[in-house]
Design a protein around this nucleic acid. Structure first.
Lengths: 340, 340
DNA sequence: TTGTAGGCGTTATCAT
DNA sequence: ATGATAACGCCTACAA
């Protein structure tokens, strides 16, 4: 039985040079005469030779691969983010290993370890669920541990630590501003709805509360609803609560759609009697009727920037790049609000 | 500077055995005495040793990794499929490398080659775009070429070839039946709308045409519309066409939502004046108003089955498993039709 | 049951 | 500019 794949020795032999020379040609070293380079290249191309990545990895301890962790790739926001990340990474010559961890802490850790085992060059966590609630440092300990081995990047969440780079949206500000506008236009019974206790959800909540208080209103527990991330769950929760509400600020678009469904079920006109603001400005905003006003958190930009930073960190490792980057959001008004 | 990672030699030394023994313990070989096994295991665990995957790969020529190709991970159907695939693969101890190829033939081929270069154990193509239009064998040649090296699986598309395993939905039948029902209920101006000329789109079209003809109607060019995969594009195309239509069969849910938007813009009541059927039964069906009737192509089942088959093929390689599996679809009626 | 040694295909460090 | 050779860390005949 013959070898199945051609290797550097074969090429060396055909070209009548040593493997060292072939390696130099492959890696674009200067120290090869133009003549030999051409000769070797010709054979490499003719034979369609590509170096064995395992052997390369063994020596260099890298396979130009990055691990992407995501709680749920079927989620609109996450899949959009992964799409941008993959594109950017691919442009830069990196492959990505996708790992869907779910939301459970043990699983997040397990998937992280799995990826480290594969010797990826960096880790990118997508979604603020990985940043925990901020209540305890322990929640994010596994991230710092990973960061001891390779640089770690977080999309939309802040985790403190050496070698961990965060990219966060100015969610507090965005929610503050939009809530304030709603109140200024006369809304009196706003509710904040979230499905999560993550870093970013907390930022948003803070923005909401700040706006409410700044208008001299009492912020009450009743103004804040925690619910599963499902259209029907939101609709039914609101119906069951039976409260008077005239504005909804949701921490994602799915929840906001649930609010629209609630309005329909309860016979409330949107936006006249109930204004609704979503978050993420995902593709679903167009599907709903009326079309959803939403806060755009600039996924594309954040993802591109993150990959850019990753490359920088990887190339001049030791770079003291700014470890936390903020990007502002943009309110996109459609037909579920009327504040501009 | 010290070595950064502990290796099999270190463990062997600590345990006072040879590396061969450590290797045997790691791989669960029978030929190790219970005593040494325990001693070695203890040290392995204490040190948290994990074998270097590159070295393993170099020898065994596998890293327990599969390549997943997808034209667009931000698409609802694709991301749902990838979610199921990743979950199943992960359960079986496989990692997945995600590659978003887009729809261009050269890119599909390039991404395929990239993945082969990484020595993945198998390739999974998600979406019938990879199966081409069926007009020419050339379109899918790159798939057969890949299949010479590793088994190839296709989710929702059929490609003929050795070592390529297809999983297809009975799309023709599904569309035939639903179209027939619509016609039987009195619809006279149905249109079929697609964004694609893929294998599965063609199956669907065939089902549509068969139903139309079976009712003694003339199938005309006008009944079939090709359009970009965008809500607004569909809406505007239908508005511009200004045709009388009373039923829409769409090849995906996004297109169907576009039809709903058209109905609203044109002042047609759904489903009374216009019935609309989507495809994929994706999450978006709930967001629209009225909620979308859609054909469920059982993504979860197809993905799980595919991974199951993959494992089988990988384990007893040479297995002559059935290379084409069909799964039937299920029409899910919601509020854009009234045929049941 | 255990150990020795060769091979997997690169890259990199020396000589030359 | 080029070649020989030693890592890299694992697996697995083959020997003992």
């Amino acid at each position: 039985m013959k070898k199945d794949t051609i290797n550097i020795y074969d090429i060396a032999e055909m070209a009548g040079v040593s493997i060292a020379t072939v390696s130099r040609v492959m890696n674009g070293s200067e120290k090869v005469s133009e003549k030999t380079r051409r000769k070797v290249m010709e054979i490499i191309e003719r034979e369609g030779f590509t170096p064995n990545v395992f052997a390369q990895g063994l020596g260099l301890n890298t396979m130009h691969t990055v691990g992407i962790l995501v709680p749920d790739i079927a989620d609109l926001y996450m899949s959009a983010a992964v799409a941008w990340l993959e594109e950017s990474l691919s442009e830069k010559g990196y492959e990505c290993i996708l790992s869907c961890s779910g939301f459970a802490p043990e699983e997040k850790q397990k998937h992280t370890e799995m990826l480290l085992t594969k010797h990826v060059d960096a880790l990118i966590y997508v979604g603020s669920t990985y940043a925990g609630s901020g209540r305890s440092e322990d929640e994010t300990e596994y991230i710092r541990k990973a960061a001891k081995q390779i640089p770690v990047f977080i999309i939309n969440g802040y985790v403190k630590g050496d070698n961990v780079y965060s990219s966060v949206n100015e969610d507090e500000e965005a929610v503050y501003e939009v809530t304030l506008k709603l109140l200024e236009k006369g809304r009196r019974k706003p509710v904040f709805i979230t499905d999560s206790g993550s870093y970013s959800a907390l930022q948003k909540k803070r923005g909401f509360e700040r706006a409410v208080k700044s208008r001299g209103m009492d912020r009450t527990e009743e103004m804040e609803i925690h619910v599963a991330n499902s259209i029907y769950a939101v609709r039914d929760t609101l119906l069951a609560a039976g409260k008077e509400i005239d504005a909804v600020i949701a921490t994602n678009d799915t929840i906001a759609v649930g609010a629209v469904k609630y309005a329909k079920a309860a016979g409330k006109r949107v936006p006249e009697e109930l204004e609704i603001v979503g978050y993420n400005n995902s593709d679903i905003v167009m599907a709903v009727e009326p079309e959803l006003s939403s806060i755009d958190n600039k996924t594309e930009q954040v993802c591109r920037d993150t990959v850019e930073r990753m490359i920088k960190v990887l190339e001049n490792s030791g770079n003291i790049d700014n470890s936390k980057v903020s990007v502002s959001c943009r309110f996109v008004e459609r037909n579920t609000t009327h504040i501009n």
